[in-house]
Every structure is written in structure tokens, then in C-alpha cells.
Design a protein around this nucleic acid. Structure first.
Lengths: 136, 136
DNA sequence: ATAAAGGTTAAAGTTTACTTTAAGTCAAGG
DNA sequence: CCTTGACTTAAAGTAAACTTTAACCTTTAT
């Protein structure tokens, strides 16, 4: 079974031209074509795209994803590099999650100040004060 | 006590011109100046910048941070809007953390395949197969 | 038969968030 | 005195990741 670019685009919630752009950038090395040159996506291609999206959505730049794709195209020659890249990225993702959680905590304390009338009053006074100083 | 732009830049690990850029974009409404026009950052400004960085690092666009800044400049008039914006963003951040965790799980299963010689062999065969089909 | 729907390419344009450059002011140190 | 270093502004330039446009081809429905 094969899928058209439109079907794949819908499945992943991406516009079709973004898939073409990924293809052009070398991120989709395995996609075949029909006799008219139209792309045909297999189940394996869908798995591949899911991984590409995963890497992209966790902040890996297109260039690095392309490097990984290139290594995959070379069969078993670059297995160590591929694994190392994923492990390095995995650590990045973990760090990002930690940082997001820290930032979430800060946002929560800030929201909490908006829930306490006393603190809101203080914030307002501080802002007023700062602006008065500026307008001198 | 006041800090120079350099000191603040070092403290937050940002280049000084990025702070000037934020200022120009209206993200630093409370920063005062010395008689030569040089920026003087107070402790309150440092707290403010910490919040700005927190919002920026969790994916809030500069435009939206500016909107929040503008509301803060207006004192107590926009308290509800400010709180609502933070609560909406808080939800965004939570969603992003969840998505990151899902993606982390996918990366982990992918790494696991590289640790199993059988699965690695299968991957390689699939890639070879796909490329053979393409070169027909 | 012809027009609509969906595919193709190449290339130019857009957005965001800086970054760099150019040109200038000011105060301290040798 | 004059140079060095840190600051100032405005404006142009950059990088990444698309997005849009233009021009074209093929299949399918009326």
C-alpha cells in the first residue's frame, strides 16, 4: 500500500509543500515515485517521517537531520555515528524538559502573585515607582 | 545598586546587543539611564529580565512578550489580561513538556534498536531494499 | 473536449530573532 | 592630549525553516 503526498500531509498535519521541502533537503531518502514522477509513500516511509518529525519537534536542525538521513542511506557503514547522534540528542531533549519544568515553576509563582491581592498591589506600586523615576 | 548592560548580559549569558534589541522592541520598559544615556539596571530589572527570558525560552514570541510588557506599563488597568496571558502560556508550556516526553520515548525506542544486533540487521536490510527499489 | 484536481519543479519571498556594521559620544588611564 | 574601551543609535545583513509564486504536466469527471 502506498500513500499520496496529500494523504501523508494530512496524517502528519503538515502542508504537502513542507514534505516536498523536506524531500528536497534530503530528509526523505527512501520515497519512491509512480510513472508520472509523483511521490509514493510506503508504511516504512511513514515510520521514517514520524522519526523526522520527532527530531524536528525536539529542536534538531534540518541540517543535522539531513546528516542522520545521509548516514541511514549508507546502510550499515555509519551505525555508530547514527546511534551516537541519537544519544546526544536524547540528552539535549532531557535538558530541555528540565529547563521547561524550571520555567514552568517560575510562571506558576508569577501567576500566584496575580491571585494574591496584596502582592498585586505591591507589583503595581513598584511599576508606578519605576515609571515615575523614568519620567524625571 | 545598579548594573551596567555588560554586567546584566554576563549574568544572563546574553550578548549586550541582544538586551539593547529587547529594549528597542519594548520588552524592558523600566530600565533607567545615567546622565550619559547609558542604561542602569536595578534589581527589579533583573527580576523582570528573568521573567522575559523564561517566557522567551518557553517559546513565547517577542510580540506577545511585548504585549505583556505594555500591559505591565499601564499599571493596574490590565491585570486580568496579564494573568490570562500567563495562564494560557502555562498551558502551552505543559503541552510542550508532554510532547517532549512522548518524543523522548520514541527516541529511546529508536536507540534501543541500535543496541539490538538483530534489529540493526533488519533496519539495514530495509534501507538496502528501499534504495534498490528506488534505483530501478 | 475541456476544465478541475492534484501532482511536479525552480526560484523568489516571508518571518522571527537576532547580529553586524557604521558612525558617533563619553570618561578614565598613560 | 589622545587613545582605549564601553556605551549610544539606526540601519542593513543573516540564518533557519518554511511559504508563495509561476509555470507546467497528467488524470478524471462533465
Amino acid at each position: 500500500m502506498f500513500y499520496t503526498i496529500k494523504q501523508v500531509a494530512d496524517r502528519f498535519g503538515l502542508p504537502a509543500h513542507t514534505l516536498r521541502y523536506y524531500d528536497k533537503e534530503g530528509l526523505l531518502p527512501f520515497v519512491s515515485r509512480d510513472k508520472n514522477g509523483n511521490r509514493l509513500f510506503s508504511e516504512l516511509d511513514l515510520n521514517w517521517i514520524a522519526l523526522i518529525c520527532c527530531l524536528k519537534n525536539t529542536g534538531m536542525p534540518i541540517k543535522e537531520i539531513k546528516e542522520y538521513s545521509d548516514w541511514c542511506k549508507q546502510g550499515s557503514q555509519k551505525l555508530e555515528e547514527r546511534k551516537a547522534l541519537l544519544i546526544a540528542h536524547r540528552e539535549q531533549v532531557e535538558k530541555q524538559i528540565e529547563e521547561f519544568q524550571k520555567n514552568l515553576a517560575l510562571i506558576d509563582t508569577k501567576i500566584a502573585t496575580y491571585e494574591d491581592p496584596e502582592l498585586v498591589k505591591k507589583m503595581d506600586e513598584q511599576a508606578t515607582l519605576a515609571l515615575q523615576q523614568l519620567s524625571r
